[in-house]
């Protein structure tokens, strides 16, 4: 959806920013609250003028399926962090750097960005480029490259993106 963004996204953005201000400030005097409201209005107006108050900046439709995906991603991150740590402390440094390309099956830009960033967030694999839904991945080990090519994360991200 391109364009100026609907009123729902603007309200959602304003609400999020106000909650952020209240939580960060911790002081609730009338003066600071009114300054906060002013700042929120200014930010929302700028976002509106920049055309960024849309579903890309406020992906409301993804909030419900996010926790399940995040829980799965966390388990993956810890598994590979332990594996990379083991290799770092190993005296002979057993790494076998591999570069490979995989196809992403996500339909939207948000899904594609989620997939590419999830690969990068997992220790041991980094996305170095995206071109026509084909990701170039640099993996620390051959097994890491095999894991990415098996496409499990790709399926999980597609589920996360499509479960609305």
């Amino acid at each position: 959806m391109r364009g100026k963004g609907s009123i729902g996204y603007i309200l959602s953005l304003g609400f999020t920013l106000m909650a952020f201000w209240l939580a960060m400030s911790g002081h609730y005097t009338p003066f600071l609250l009114s300054v906060g409201v002013g700042c929120v209005l200014l930010c929302v107006w700028i976002a509106y003028r920049m055309h960024v108050a849309d579903e890309e900046g406020q992906p409301i439709h993804l909030y419900s399926s996010a926790p399940r995906y995040w829980a799965w991603l966390w388990v993956e991150i810890f598994k590979s962090a332990i594996d990379v740590s083991r290799r770092i402390w190993h005296p002979s440094l057993p790494i076998s750097p591999t570069m490979t390309r995989v196809r992403a099956s996500q339909k939207t830009d948000v899904g594609l960005a989620t997939y590419a960033n999830s690969i990068t967030l997992t220790p041991g694999t980094i996305t170095t480029g995206v071109e026509d839904k084909i990701l170039t991945v640099y993996a620390l080990t051959r097994e890491g490259a095999d894991d990415v090519q098996s496409g499990e994360m790709d399926r999980k991200v597609s589920e996360f993106e499509g479960a609305d």
Partner: peptide
């Protein structure tokens, strides 16, 4: 430099 990025992501995440 590329393999060092993996070490950095261990700090950043875990």
């Amino acid at each position: 430099v590329f393999s060092r990025m993996h070490a950095v992501s261990v700090i950043d995440t875990a």
